[in-house]
């Protein structure tokens, strides 16, 4: 059985991965809101997690715990372990990103990229006047 439908049936999981990946990347690029950008990043990273898990999964395979029976197919455990690491990294990235967004909000009074960009020019004044300008930004 070949044709587009067959591909869809056989590898729908990869299609999901691609959709999530493109969607996430699109959000990162297109959104102005800094939090939404982070959400996009998280989706993008999650798609990669799914990709690894799909690769490691053997059809009909079970968890790789040694059993007495000899004809058991095991799924590859390594991708799962890798993704465990990647998830930790992803969480750290998101956490740090959100922390930065908080600080940006405190400093600029906005979390919209374009608004902050417009404010940057006002910030490039000598140190003495900078405090005044940041309070302007907060209004």
């Amino acid at each position: 059985m070949t044709g587009p439908l067959a591909i869809l049936a056989d590898s729908w999981n990869y299609l999901v991965v691609i959709c999530l990946m493109m969607g996430g990347l699109f959000i990162v690029i297109s959104q102005q809101n800094l939090v939404k950008k982070l959400v996009g990043l998280a989706i993008f990273q999650t798609s990669v997690f799914l990709f690894y898990i799909s690769v490691g999964k053997v059809a009909g395979g079970t968890a790789p715990i040694l059993m007495k029976a000899t004809d058991v197919a095991y799924s590859n455990p390594l991708p799962h372990v890798l993704i465990l690491t990647a998830i930790v990294v992803g969480v750290a990235t998101t956490a740090l990103g959100l922390a930065l967004v908080l600080r940006i909000n405190a400093a600029f009074g906005s979390i919209e990229d374009d608004e902050i960009l417009a404010m940057k020019a006002a910030a490039s004044v000598p140190r003495a006047r900078r405090d005044a300008s940041s309070s302007e930004g907060a209004q």
Binding site: V28, L41, F44, R103, A107, F108, K120
Partner: peptide
């Protein structure tokens, strides 16, 4: 950000672009 608040945005952008690159 102690001397220039734009450092926060610079850090954020590096985080975002760097994370995409790493991914």
């Amino acid at each position: 950000s102690g001397t220039d608040r734009r450092a926060l945005v610079a850090g954020y952008n590096y985080l975002l672009i760097g994370a995409v690159g790493a991914t």
